[in-house]
Design a protein around this nucleic acid. Sequence first.
DNA 1: CTGTTAGCGCTTTCAT
DNA 2: ATGAAAGCGCTAACAG
Lengths: 336, 336
Amino acid sequence: MTIADKPQSRPTLRDVANLAGVSVATASKALNGRDQVHPDTRARVVLAAEKISFTPNALAQGLIAGQTGTVGLITGDLDGRFSLPILMGAEDAFGKGKMSVFLCDARGDSIREQYHLDALLSRRVDGLIVVGSRTDPRPSLGRNLPVPVVYAYAPSTDENDLSLVPDDVQGGADSVDFLVARGRRKIAHITGQMDYTAAQDRARGIESTLSAHGLPLIGGTQYGSWTEQWGRNATARLIEQHPDVDGILCGNDQIARGALDTLREAGWEVPGRVSVMGYDNWEVFTTGARPHLTSVDINLEALGALAARRLFEAIDGDVRSGIESLPCRIVPRETT
Amino acid sequence: MTIADKPQSRPTLRDVANLAGVSVATASKALNGRDQVHPDTRARVVLAAEKISFTPNALAQGLIAGQTGTVGLITGDLDGRFSLPILMGAEDAFGKGKMSVFLCDARGDSIREQYHLDALLSRRVDGLIVVGSRTDPRPSLGRNLPVPVVYAYAPSTDENDLSLVPDDVQGGADSVDFLVARGRRKIAHITGQMDYTAAQDRARGIESTLSAHGLPLIGGTQYGSWTEQWGRNATARLIEQHPDVDGILCGNDQIARGALDTLREAGWEVPGRVSVMGYDNWEVFTTGARPHLTSVDINLEALGALAARRLFEAIDGDVRSGIESLPCRIVPRETT
DNA sequence: CTGTTAGCGCTTTCAT
DNA sequence: ATGAAAGCGCTAACAG
């Protein structure tokens, strides 16, 4: 029988103080490493705290401090391929400190988003990260929020907000350079739906870099859907109409998988006759492919980590705004 | 100039009360829908609250109530295929109420898990959900926690804990029944690593159901890895050694994709000559496949939602324990 | 109906 | 070095 005094409720600092035979004030100082405490006293307090497994009530601490050590993470759709790595990166960056993260999935619904926002503000989060699943701009949460906000992946439409996005234009450009450096001259581009900013940005990077090299874009930018099916179909048509094509840039890894399937069945050797590149570097697709797929990684975890860092800075008063683009990186495998 | 009194800090109930010309107590009652308040007074208070965009401080409320309306979600690895849908289901189920969720990724590290646990307890969460990425039993968080815990997907080794897992034995059994009902009699099973409880459970369900039907398991349970590569290799060997096989049960959708690839290249018609089934129903794989892959769905979101419900019940005092298995469900597509 | 008083658990002056 | 007292923002008895 050690504890068992207040049946339901958890031990408080007062319990510790009583047990140690000191006042709450002293107990507080002892536990928080304040200096004016006699070593012996501190030891007694610490021991008492351990004995009753005292855990300080962060709510009470937060009430006083005016800071809670929590942040809110509002995501548009959790199931998406993109929110998650960002979230992981952020969680990781926060986790190193003493921050805890509230996760809210708005399910792409702005009503629900507002609801979550209110809840988070009520819980006095120190800051917010809003992550989207497409790079298309999204409405701002508003300018007059009492805490800083960082937008990740999906930028805010408001220039006064800080948004972090992958540099898809550069990603597209780099993939062209990469193929050109390997001697490819007849490059095609098969991508997803045209209404995705991501698709447009990459296309822009590809087209401009190709013309900078004085090279044509074989067959023009072919928009379709982000699926294997489309990758197969588009590739079938491509190699029929342009038998001289020697490089295929795909809008994502699934399209690339479709392309590889069609090429294999047509007896085209990869990378012998034609090189293929994916985008997103979704490992389960790239390494399941035959041969393993070269892809462009958009460094989502880094983006999440940076979002966390920027949020910290903003909480500390260093507020930025505008759109910050993060570099992509090519992960070479066997298809190039 | 309406507010602008306390520069940095957010409006408190006292600000509202002052503005409305009432006491804090009355303001509180008015805002919380307590009855003994004159309608006019209430209106004045509500108006005042809106005018200064007052948001009640949930920390203060939680301090008094002894309940915070928050729960902790500790996951083994966020990137896994399995934690996420569970998390979504739970988030959804909680979201309908007024709960907020702390997300913690322990990265499979028990030190980090303990760290997060302490942080969550300090924040006075009302309950915890622990989600794993494999169905293999995991160590308990401990019996003497001050809040209820529900384990999802990865069950606790402690029988006194409540664990929720998919019924993989039944999932395996059902897949056999499904193929048998479609006239298949020579069924094989290619699956992942043997040290996965999931692989063993499914194998058990398959083997026992097959023998209940008086049918053989062609080639025995073939353990390997959860990859397309393995699916291709194992299938190549299978159709060479057992040209009479007419059904292939795969341990996951990736293995099934590999199987389909090999079968197509060998000229075997699916589902004409042989039926193929995946497991997990990972849509990006099942609907990218040619033909679309029939698969077993383990209803992860439902599992997450149930975890949330069970946690609520436990918070309300209705504590259960033991392992609860949730049914799987076959999603028929074109490969069967 | 409304206001006063007393805390929730903790930290922080300010005396002692 | 220690403790008494005030107060963070809010709610819940109690009086009036």
